[in-house]
């Protein structure tokens, strides 16, 4: 599913974000990337989602070596991933329905199918009936659920989340984590970058600990 083989990442400002990182995440596995801010968790996610390319080493996602993917192939590569952000990255001037449907519209899914799948995704995250509401009218926890619904509506085999509970209180964070667990239960691989140690212990999944750009555990 995801293979990092001796990956180095240096940014243009000279910062070495990753140093000789090797890791392997299997299909259907739920993995936490842990570590302090700036440790390199987000850099790993950026390499998985092809927002960045490695300086050295190889990154293979869904059987595709990202180094060999052309710029034209990136959109279809990203359609097979679901991405959730700490700040949700929702379009605040569009209703919930449009935010979620966007993932399917870009994939040229027929409208009738879009309607069915958006409602199904909203049902999964407990927001069915809120289709026409603007994200600004929702609570932070609900906005995060919309972000998750958008990430899973395309039925990806891999779900990537960067600090998805960073802005949530513990109860809401648990709710969101349970949602991720449910997706893992149906065979979706889930990679979550988080520094919330208590939550990680609570869900008892494999954790990869990153420190100053290297895997330490």
């Amino acid at each position: 599913m995801i293979i990092f083989d001796r990956v180095f990442k240096r940014y243009p400002n000279g910062c070495d974000a990753l140093r000789d990182v090797s890791l392997h995440i299997k299909p259907g596995e739920m993995v936490f990337l842990t570590g302090r801010s700036g440790a390199g968790k987000s850099s790993i996610l950026k390499l998985i989602t092809l927002l960045e390319r490695p300086t050295r080493g190889s990154v293979v996602v869904n059987g595709q070596n990202t180094a060999s993917l052309s710029a034209r192939a990136i959109p279809s590569f990203r359609r097979n991933l679901g991405v959730v952000f700490q700040d949700h990255q929702l379009l605040m001037d569009r209703p919930v329905y449009d935010n979620i449907a966007l993932s399917l519209i870009v994939a040229d899914v027929p409208y009738r199918e879009i309607d069915r799948r958006v409602r199904a995704a909203l049902d999964q995250v407990g927001l069915l009936g809120r289709e026409r509401v603007l994200p600004s009218e929702l609570s932070i926890g609900e906005q995060q659920r919309v972000g998750i619904a958008r990430a899973v509506v395309g039925k990806p085999s891999l779900l990537v989340a960067d600090e998805p509970t960073g802005n949530l209180d513990h109860a809401l964070a648990q709710d969101v984590m349970r949602l991720f667990k449910r997706f893992q239960d149906v065979g979706v691989a889930v990679v979550i970058a988080s520094h919330d140690e208590s939550l990680i212990e609570e869900f008892a999944q494999r954790a990869i600990h990153i420190e100053t750009g290297a895997v330490v555990a």
Binding site: R78, R79, V83, L102, G154
Partner: peptide
């Protein structure tokens, strides 16, 4: 800009 970034992130091509 934000809309374009999100669209590209969920797999929107340049043509789209």
């Amino acid at each position: 800009r934000t809309e374009i970034e999100v669209t590209k992130l969920v797999g929107g091509s340049n043509a789209f």
